[in-house]
Design a protein around this nucleic acid. Structure first.
Lengths: 181, 181
DNA sequence: CACTGATCTGACCGATCGGTCAGGGTCTGA
DNA sequence: TCAGACCCTGACCGATCGGTCAGATCAGTG
């Protein structure tokens, strides 16, 4: 064999993205990925330190945007924060709906892992912003349902045009969130 | 040892419920359950045909209520169906939020399994009812986000009183769903 | 030519999984 | 007393997982 192609790294990444999207992170084995690329499992682990490193690299762009949103969010309060969070999160979900779909149902476990630890703090801030800073349980419930619902489903809408999905989600969020006092 | 207790069946079921709620269905091994009960893994498999049978028995009450809702739903259309679905699903989510939490992130795989196949059809009808029978993509998007969001999060609100959670979710759903033309 | 470093692989490892099985203890009723 | 039903277990199985490693192959370089 000996393919000697420096693009193998990217091929593996693309194949992993496809497989993860189909069967989830845990549901995809290194052998699956290797099979899709047409190389051996050992080759996959030659290009990536371990399985998690593949996921980390795949999610990097989305996480960068999420962190940028978090920083913008830190500068706002109340109704302003709610609006920034709504627009920012919907935009994120639409743009990276394929990447987010990879994680469907694996958020709880993955968020425990050290390399995703900071995501937990960011999601806390998102919830608070969605809730309009309110301590009322009904506000927090609405915030959590919307954030989780969008995260879990946005991958389903691969064939909906970006702009159509964005406006539908934004309209939904604006109807659904409790107005800030 | 030889505990010779006919209640072992129920002990296993309770222990499995606790473990599944903590670490999910796939994330819980038969050994984990056995360890929590204080018996051997072989004992677990003496009382249950296989791992899936434990889950099936655990979910039976919730599934029965879901099926009843589906039948009620079959008799309604448009706005009436939307209202029946909203009240019925919220009630289901609140009453069985512990059971639903067991499945967090495992809906996709589990729905593929034969013993849960009919759930897929039921969820289709729920989505259609939530969307008010509309074909507009924005209506279906809102329906899916709400259903998935509530399913994924209701387990988080174990310490919120039933009535408070019910009214919060119902208010959210009524705000969020598009009104039927 | 020899050497080097990058790429790739088959064979292998330990761990864990769900599940099977033969057999041993205990209780009950004839 | 004893057969048999019931309950339980340790030992074991095949499969699969993520990951390691020594070595084969190749391109470039001096």
């Amino acid at each position: 064999m000996a393919r000697v192609s420096p693009e193998t790294h990217d091929e593996i990444l693309a194949a992993a993205g496809r497989r993860f999207a189909l069967t989830g992170y845990r549901g995809t084995s290194l052998q699956d990925i290797a099979g899709e690329v047409g190389c051996s499992k050992a080759t996959v682990l030659y290009h990536f330190a371990n399985k998690e490193a593949i996921l980390t690299e795949l999610m990097a762009p989305a996480i960068a945007v999420l962190q940028a949103l978090d920083e913008r969010l830190a500068a706002h309060r109340g109704a302003a924060a709610q609006q920034v969070a709504a627009e920012g999160f919907v935009d994120l979900a639409v743009r990276f709906r394929r990447e987010i779909a990879l994680l469907r149902g694996e958020f709880p476990e993955l968020l425990q892992q050290p390399s995703f630890a900071h995501i937990h703090r960011i999601s806390e801030r998102l919830i608070e912003a969605f809730a309009g800073g309110s301590e009322r349980s009904s506000a927090r419930i609405a915030a959590l349902v919307l954030l989780a619902g969008i995260s879990e489903t946005c991958g389903e809408f691969a064939d909906v045009p970006d702009e159509e999905l964005r406006s539908a989600l934004l309209a939904l969020v604006r109807r659904a969130l409790e107005p800030v006092d």
